[in-house]
């Protein structure tokens, strides 16, 4: 199971990098989202995957044991990362929209005004 998810993370990173290297800004932003989710999966995987374990919920707490229980901390970390990702996604899309409105272009090669004149 770990191997499958690890390969999947690799695939996500590959597609994210591919998207980042495209010339369109929209694809760049999609690439950022894909990489962000791949990173969340890394944290998820780092806690180890235990199937059918019980975490410590009030009335089933006595059934939980360290052997069968999944580590809850990475999930809390992912939640935090997702919340941050949500805020960033909203902001970055707004920024893209505003940029498109001012310049009317999607092309990354047009972003050369702030570089060497």
């Amino acid at each position: 199971m770990e191997l499958v998810i690890a390969l999947f993370i690799g695939l996500l990173y590959a597609s994210g990098v591919y998207l980042l290297l495209r010339r369109s800004i929209v694809k760049l932003i999609l690439g950022v989202f894909v990489i962000s989710n791949a990173t969340n999966l890394i944290i998820f995987l780092s806690g180890g995957i235990t199937r059918s374990g019980v975490s410590f919920i009030a009335d089933e707490a006595e059934k939980a044991s360290l052997e069968t229980m999944t580590d809850p901390l990475p999930q809390a970390l992912i939640l935090t990362a997702i919340v941050i990702g949500l805020g960033i996604a909203a902001y970055i899309l707004a920024l893209k929209y505003k940029y498109f409105e001012t310049t009317g272009t999607h092309d990354l090669d047009q972003l050369s005004k702030t570089d060497q004149k």
Binding site: V32, I35, T39, I43, G47, L73
Partner: peptide
Amino acid sequence: NLISSFFFVAGIGLLYG
């Protein structure tokens, strides 16, 4: 900067693992 954050948080994930 977002990409640098992803590097950082992926590193944290591996370290925690």
